[in-house]
Simulated assay, not measured.
Amino acid sequence: MTASWTVSQMPDCTDKTVLITGANSGLGFEATKAFASNGATVIMACRSTERGRRAAIEIRDSIADTGATLNVRQCDLASLESIDAFTTGVERDYDRIDILCNNAGVMAIPRQETEDGFEKQLGVNHLGHFALTGKLLDLLLENDSPSRIVTHSSGAHEMGEIDFDDLHRERSYGKWEAYGQSKLANLLFAYELQRRLEAANVTDTLSVACHPGYAATNLQYRGPEEAGSRLRLGLMKAINAIVGQSAAKGSLPLLYAATARDVQGGDYYGPDGVGNMRGGPEQQSSSEASYDRQAAAKLWERSEELTGTTFTFVLD
């Protein structure tokens, strides 16, 4: 693994089925493009199928004929009903998934709730992906070749704290505190999932995590737009232009975690530059709180209760 690692070093993905949430924009768009360029079948899980179809057309027009298939499907991670409908359709039409990329997310938005009453950042970034992964687990385990589950976190997890007494931040809400909590939850989930796979003697399915550093995407704009702050929106655009690396560069840790041959279960990848904000993918350590097994087990239990999703690690 070196700072010069690029998509050109990705293994051939022909005959691989990849599912990416948030596939129509930003990091998800770039990851979808990279997988398709390497011949994969990509299930593009998008909140808006219209935007998903436009993205798929753009990707097809920009890559050579690799035999890739892009399948756009509607999935709103802020709705357990939508997740259930989406996973039911995927299970009907596919007999396996090789790579699941839990990528979609929202960042630093005014307090909102999902359709099911969850604080939206926790609901979309963590609980939605928890339910999605649990419902698709059989397709990852029922596989003749190794499979991976990659969960996208953020350096912002370091400021996160799981408030089990006010998980949905009903008593006290700060948009960045809630975002940090959701990104810490991503890591607690990814690591706990790997531990549970190992406890069930599942060796061919790995759970790993990553973060993009500072990648300039539309994710940074949603909070100011929803708050109606033109000043903050302009400031964020300026910061993105000066500090951020491209979405294509930001997607490299995700792509490395999903495909590189030296990846191990429980690994965490991010950019190797100053402050881990830019650069090529490397293995890193996350915060001390992210390795708290007691907190991870408690969050897992709460996530099962809230989503009604249980994970079955042993197949019939």
Rank of each mutant, 00 (worst) to 15 (best):
T114Y: 02
A289N: 12
H129T: 02
R261A: 15
A3T: 14
T69K: 09
V274L: 10
G67V: 03
V124Q: 11
D65L: 13
A296D: 02
D93S: 14
E158K: 13
G160F: 02
Y214A: 14
A55D: 04
T312I: 09
A31P: 09
L193N: 05
P281T: 12
I239Y: 10
E158M: 13
L19G: 05
Y173C: 08
T2V: 07
S285K: 15
S287P: 01
F86T: 12
D76M: 02
L184C: 09
T217E: 11
A3F: 04
Q9N: 07
G67E: 05
S4G: 01
G308I: 08
I149C: 02
T66L: 05
T32Q: 03
S172L: 13
G155K: 01
E91D: 12
G279D: 11
T203W: 01
R302T: 12
S207W: 01
L197P: 03
K237C: 07
E198T: 15
G266T: 05
N218L: 05
T114H: 10
F35R: 07
V106E: 04
A85S: 14
A215K: 02
A260C: 09
D204G: 13
P146M: 03
S25Q: 06
L19E: 07
R169W: 06
R51L: 11
D98I: 03
Y268G: 00
L235P: 01
V42S: 01
T312M: 02
G279A: 03
A34F: 01
G250Q: 10
G26E: 14
P224L: 10
G123A: 05
F118V: 12
Q181K: 08
A199G: 13
I63W: 00
D138L: 08
L299F: 07
K120L: 13
A108D: 13
F86W: 04
E58A: 14
L219T: 07
S37Y: 07
